[in-house]
Design a protein around this nucleic acid. Sequence first.
DNA 1: CATAGTGCTTTAACCGTTTGCAATACCTGA
DNA 2: TCAGGTATTGCAAACGGTTAAAGCACTATG
Lengths: 351, 351
Amino acid sequence: MRSNGEKSGNGYKNGNGNEHTMTMQKIATLAGVSKGTVSRALADDPKVSEKTRLKIKEIASSQNYRPNAAAVSLARGRTNTIGLVIPSAPRALSDPFYLEFLGGVGDFLITKGYNILLSPMSEQGPGHVKLLETNRIDGLILTEPEQADARIAYLRDRAIPFVFLGQTSDNEGLWVDGDNVGGARIAVNHLLGLGHRRIGCITGSMNLVSGANRLAGYITALTAAGVPFQQELVAEGDFTEPGGRRAVAQLLELENPPTAIFACNDLMAIGAINGARERGISIPQDLALAGFDGIRSGELISPKLTTVVQPIYQMGLLAGELLVKSILGEEITTRHMLLPLDLKIRESCGG
Amino acid sequence: MRSNGEKSGNGYKNGNGNEHTMTMQKIATLAGVSKGTVSRALADDPKVSEKTRLKIKEIASSQNYRPNAAAVSLARGRTNTIGLVIPSAPRALSDPFYLEFLGGVGDFLITKGYNILLSPMSEQGPGHVKLLETNRIDGLILTEPEQADARIAYLRDRAIPFVFLGQTSDNEGLWVDGDNVGGARIAVNHLLGLGHRRIGCITGSMNLVSGANRLAGYITALTAAGVPFQQELVAEGDFTEPGGRRAVAQLLELENPPTAIFACNDLMAIGAINGARERGISIPQDLALAGFDGIRSGELISPKLTTVVQPIYQMGLLAGELLVKSILGEEITTRHMLLPLDLKIRESCGG
DNA sequence: CATAGTGCTTTAACCGTTTGCAATACCTGA
DNA sequence: TCAGGTATTGCAAACGGTTAAAGCACTATG
């Protein structure tokens, strides 16, 4: 007993909390071996004999030993923590989208032994990134890429692994996204199939890739069907409910208003429904409306929203998986995941 | 230059990432002082001379120095990280409530230099707590306390500071909550004021404190108004939309159905609206409906939901503040924050 | 019987900070 | 000029792990 050196803690500082926290050294003393052996035993290093390993594990678990994460991070140079940057208000806090995504990310990463550090993207620019960098995270999941996103260069420069939720222009990068173009096309095709020819579009924020791509899908669907694209049928929104409300007003005031509208997300679709209703226009009788995202509220509203459903939770899982692979330096065969999207037909388009 | 000892990194391990990360030692070398002086200078220790301090800070910022969080944690015995346990599916991921709460918590804690580690409460029991303990968090914010919550004893035993979002039975504990009893009473009083005498209640999960208290508020409001409480008018829900739908069906099938219903949260209220509509009952003409929480969807639905609004974001701020005080050992005058709630009158109650 | 393995364990350096104490430099007044 | 402060700074021991390399106790070999 107490055979090895390492003067026991005279604890001349660090007065916080438990005096009786179990450390590796204490386990070692109890087991009559050295600290190093304990470390190896707990890591299942084959160089430790079966007998010793079992004894040490036994003691460790009976003493309820938990390694100190900070010490592990320091020694290994990895934090086992990843950062998740979600957009700040108004979008994130109101959009159920991100919480569900977070659920997927969390469920995956936690089983892999990673922790999630949340960073609301409060400041513009790479401020939040710095915040995360301070904490030496192993990797980062970001959302809402912009058309030319400055964060990409910043992160690549720092060699921090990262994954975007949302397609980025940069071809190297890792990202997971729903097929915005394809999804939009499906929605518009559905409206075309119902006989509509005058189909409006309420766009999202055009600086976001998702906003631009959904509009692109709308346009290609129209032209593929031989319906000429008309600029006046496009009203710019901003992915919020009031934005949708404003945009629908703009479209309904045309001398020849659309008979159907594709809104680039559900929140705007809901805004459009409300806005249309205020003008005495009933959905879907007078106006068909399709959305995008598949958020919960779309099911709750009346009429229930026909929408392009994104597998949000799934996307979270995938983003987590990509990031972990990237952190561990494993080979990544598909760097981009463009998930096909389905249309969930409910009530808002009639038919 | 290079006056002090400390063999420079021969780096025989730890091959990850940047070879050129700035450490305190490097700053010290650049400034021609010792590591310890740098540490003190950056911490604004008055024992360091003005001149040295300025020089060191200058160099540190020009070198873009960021302290290694793991090392700080290890040395100080504090992690500057707090855990946030949110309920897992189905409630959390669909309930905008928690994301908004998280926003408040995050905004407060991040300005105080804390990080947030998220833990979806995936397993039952204290499993997630252990997870957090492994990471030596400084404190914990928990949600959805149960009537006799085992986590309380567990955490107190480990001397981990914690704050609940939700009133706990335990009188020592710290918590922030909306006034569930009072809020429910206001809602029911509103219905009473509109002339209703036969008012139903769709309860939440009765094992949760919030569920029990909102029912209590309903009952006290009724009895205070001299309206006898009738068990048949109470239908048990579970805080979900389908739960509300089922519950409203149960109430509407009574031979003498209620003319108004108080649903213990908005999600159930929305379910009730949908359920009622399916049965051809229109809101608010045939049935008045009030909810609780003030979530976003309640504004989007038609008719817009009259509901007891909780200052969710605010509650997040307060929870963060309480927790930090508790961690730092500051004196806490009010250990419980029971926030008064207001009724937001919209359309679903008519009147 | 000396020598080389082999299998396991100990030793000690190291990760990047914080901080008590020792040491040095600079002042002050006698 | 020198003792005795006082303001700064340096030193080195922690914090709790990981891990290369040396050490030790055996056995197998020549």
